[in-house]
């Protein structure tokens, strides 16, 4: 079964604000019964201040759909409509202490129900432009529709292109067969042919990913050399992190464990664990020895244990 956080379970077993608000003046209905998730959100909005006084949900769906609905109503109560419109699906997922990648769409459904309800209150028409496909990349929660659109729009040719544009396939790589199938399909629709041999060979990829200035380590390292090398590798990875609005900084190295402080968008991102795993992988490739990367937040406890 899914690895749900305790908060998800708490909101599922004891949902808040279940049922329709009796004298609601805003209603949003989203979801799809064929996909097994559907949500009706009802709000009572104060006409003067546009503050959401009450929120209630009715949900047909799985544990995380019900939990997402429940937490959404808790988040938005007391907000003005303009404030509520700024709530993202990531906010919903964060409040639940994360959702499995396959279940992120539950939080998207929550945000969409909110937008639909506010549009309903304001007499606007809300149109959903979101189409969801089968989940392809489980590491980064990228679905088939998203990949297909990017392949169409950006003339992507290879799995590597897809990874560069969507992140899909950039983690465990188990979905590369599925990505190739999408490339094959979309390129056929465009009257072209997918040529797997165009993909860069593994050794090329290695080279491309390793900026040339960082030479792989061959001889055993002193502690100082190791720290310097780790810093060098981390520096080379920072531009990519910054492109995603995040950053990482080396805090301490104890033995073969590097403590790294994840900041910006990386901090609290549900993908932070993946990013750390990626940094660790890079470090091990360059250093040629086992290196463990640990978030700096965990350093204190570890040091304490050592002292004790």
């Amino acid at each position: 079964m899914w690895d749900y956080s305790d908060t998800v379970k708490e909101h599922f077993f004891n949902p808040k604000n279940a049922g329709a608000v009796a004298d609601a003046n805003a209603t949003g209905e989203v979801g799809s019964i064929s996909c097994g998730d559907a949500l009706r959100l009802t709000l009572k909005v104060d006409d003067e201040s546009e503050i959401i006084l009450e929120a209630g949900f009715q949900t047909f769906g799985c544990g995380s759909a019900i939990a997402s609905s429940s937490v959404l109503t808790e988040i938005i109560k007391g907000m003005t409509l303009d404030e509520a419109l700024k709530v993202t699906n990531q906010d919903i997922a964060d409040q639940l202490e994360g959702l499995p990648p396959e279940k992120m769409h539950c939080s998207v459904m929550g945000r969409e129900a909110l937008q639909a309800a506010i549009a309903n209150y304001r007499g606007e028409e809300w149109r959903d432009d979101h189409e969801e496909g089968a989940l392809i990349c489980k590491c980064f929660a990228i679905d088939a529709v998203m990949i297909e659109e990017m392949v169409w729009a950006n003339k992507l040719r290879t799995v590597e292109d897809v990874t560069n544009f969507t992140k899909a396939g950039g983690g465990c790589a188990a979905c590369h067969e599925d990505i190739e199938a999408i490339l094959e399909k979309v390129l056929a629709e465009k009257g072209e042919k997918f040529d797997p041999s165009v993909c860069s060979k593994p050794e090329d990829k290695q080279k491309a990913a390793t900026p040339e200035k960082i030479a792989a380590v061959k001889t055993p390292l002193t502690n100082l050399q190791r720290i310097k090398k780790i810093e060098e590798v981390l520096e080379s990875l920072r531009p990519a992190l910054m492109a995603d609005g995040g950053d990482a900084e080396l805090v301490e190295v104890i033995g073969n464990t590097a403590y790294v402080n994840m900041t910006g968008a990386c901090n609290g991102c549900s993908m932070a664990a993946m990013t750390i795993a990626g940094i660790q992988q890079r470090l091990m490739e360059v250093m040629g020895e086992f290196i463990k990367v640990v978030p700096a937040s965990e350093m204190k406890k570890l040091v304490n244990i050592e002292v004790a």
Partner: peptide, 9 residues
């Protein structure tokens, strides 16, 4: 099916 027909493709 008619009473609750949410918008979603």
């Amino acid at each position: 099916e008619q009473a609750f027909a949410p918008t979603y493709s």
